[in-house]
Amino acid sequence: MRKTVLITGAAGFLGSHLCDKFISEEYRVIAMDNLITGDLKNISHLFQLENFEFYHHDVTKFVHVPGNVDYILHFASPASPIDYLKIPIQTLKVGSLGTHNLLGLAKEKNARILIASTSEVYGDPLIHPQNEEYYGNVNTIGPRGVYDEAKRFQESITMAYHRFHGLETRIARIFNTYGPRMRLNDGRVIPAFIGQALRGENLTVFGDGSQTRSFCYVDDEVEGIYRLLLSDYALPMNIGNPEEITILDFANEIIKLTGTEQKIVFEPLPQDDPLQREPDITKAKQILEWEPKVSRREGMQKTFEYFKNLSKEELFKSEHKDFSKHNRG
């Protein structure tokens, strides 16, 4: 019999690629999303498959799934600053109430659960690169705190279930990931730069551009997450690409990639924006025998081709989702 995996946040960027991965590995996939930031077009190609089903549901409400569930991957959360600054309460709720509900479901089903944490738990780090033993340098009450603290609580309650209930848990600390199906106007660096270039706009760099990021192509990220789920390692693990680049250098790469002649303009650095981001993936290499394989040049070319093929309507539209009904506490 096929094993069954429940994937929350399944209509989002990373969640949809995880659906593809588990379908390709011949799992039965139950996809769940409330579609606040997700989009059904990301998983519409799977709807006709016998071993795929979709639940339109908010995991901050009680979660019930009939039948056997072997694995749960909790990826339901706003992940971009534009989103979690618009829906701060929902962001906190999905990291706390949502995680609690899914841990309870995992306990009921005797399922192994992997939760999607983030490099943002490190805050604006004082060590470089960041390893899993670093506790972070965070601002709990800053504008980014709604996301950072939701993820830090998520890790804490997951480890509590692991230690107190003996639940099989896995924690993936995900660093910047990119690829096809990213939302063009979600505020993250790569779609923001590519969108500006394709629209003929100047590229906006915050601060002086000396801050760094490390970008991992989605296929590599998904493979790392998959291996972590099937491993015996219960503590948090960094999954990302350690190839670091400054934002200014990356903006120039985008201009070269797109063949445009835009200028770079500078804006003030947002509050608590981390100045350095680079994962130490020693544990992933040793325990999972995993490291990224797709070069930034190859990954960015694939990503650019995806965005280049969007319609003009998609390219020029701004984010218009109505978050108001979800922003209640």
Rank of each mutant, 00 (worst) to 15 (best):
Asp280Tyr: 04
Pro236Glu: 05
Asp272Thr: 05
Ser295Phe: 01
Ile239Ala: 09
Ile254Lys: 11
Leu288Glu: 06
Ala284Tyr: 00
Val222Phe: 04
Pro279Ile: 02
Arg297Ala: 14
Leu229Lys: 13
Ile287Val: 14
Glu267Thr: 01
Asn238Thr: 10
Ile254Leu: 09
Pro270Phe: 02
Val222Met: 00
Lys293Ile: 03
Phe266His: 10
Glu289His: 12
Glu298Ser: 09
Leu269Tyr: 03
Gly240Tyr: 08
Arg277Glu: 12
Asp249Phe: 01
Gln286Ala: 05
Leu288Ile: 08
Glu291Ile: 05
Lys285Asn: 00
Thr246Glu: 05
Val222Thr: 08
Met300Trp: 12
Asp280Glu: 12
Thr260Ile: 03
Pro270Asn: 06
Thr260Ala: 04
Asp249Gln: 14
Met237Cys: 14
Gln262Ile: 00
Ile287Glu: 12
Phe250Arg: 12
Tyr233Ile: 15
Gln262Cys: 07
Leu275Cys: 01
Val265Trp: 01
Gln271Asn: 09
Pro292Asp: 00
Ser231Phe: 14
Lys263Thr: 01
Lys283His: 04
Ala251Phe: 10
Val222Leu: 03
Ile264Ser: 04
Ile281Met: 04
Gln286Arg: 08
Ile247Tyr: 13
Glu223Ala: 09
Ala234Phe: 15
Ile225Ser: 09
Asp232Val: 13
Ile245Met: 11
Tyr233His: 15
Thr260Arg: 13
Glu298Gly: 01
Leu248Arg: 13
Gln271Cys: 01
Ile281Ser: 07
Met237Trp: 07
Pro268His: 06
Lys285Gly: 03
Leu229Pro: 15
Asn238Leu: 15
Pro279Cys: 02
Asn238Cys: 15
Ile239Asn: 09
Val294Tyr: 03
Asn241Phe: 06
Glu223Phe: 03
Thr282Ala: 10
Glu291Pro: 12
Ile254Asn: 09
Ile287Ala: 05
Tyr233Ser: 13
Trp290Asp: 00
Lys293Thr: 08
Leu235Thr: 07
Lys285His: 04
Lys256Ile: 10
Lys256Glu: 13
Trp290Ser: 02
Ile245Asn: 08
Ser295Trp: 00
Asp273Met: 03
Lys285Met: 04
Lys263His: 03
Trp290Tyr: 03
Lys256Arg: 14
Asn241Met: 04
Pro274Ser: 08
Ala284Pro: 11
Ile287Asp: 10
Ser295Leu: 01
Arg227Cys: 11
Ser231Leu: 15
Tyr226Val: 06
Tyr226Thr: 14
Ala251Trp: 06
Pro274Cys: 08
Asp249Met: 04
Ile225Asn: 10
Val294Gly: 07
Lys293Leu: 10
Met300His: 11
Lys285Leu: 02
Leu257Cys: 10
Pro270Glu: 06
Lys256Ala: 14
Gln286Pro: 02
Gly240Asp: 14
Glu223Val: 03
Ile287Gln: 05
Val222Gly: 06
Tyr226Gly: 12
Glu253Ile: 09
Asp232Leu: 11
Asn241Tyr: 05
Ile255Val: 15
Ile254Glu: 09
Asp220Ile: 00
Asp232Tyr: 11
Ala234Cys: 12
Ile281Val: 06
Pro274Gly: 05
Ala234Asp: 14
Leu269Cys: 04
Gln276Pro: 01
Gly259Trp: 04
Glu221Gln: 15
Gly299Met: 05
Ser231Pro: 15
Ile264Trp: 01
Gly259Glu: 02
Ser295Tyr: 02
Leu235Ile: 06
Met237Arg: 12
Phe250Asn: 06
Arg277Ile: 13
Val265Leu: 00
Glu261Val: 00
Arg227His: 12
Pro236Cys: 09
Leu248Gln: 09
Glu267Asn: 00
Leu229His: 10
Pro236Arg: 08
Asp272Met: 01
Glu267His: 01
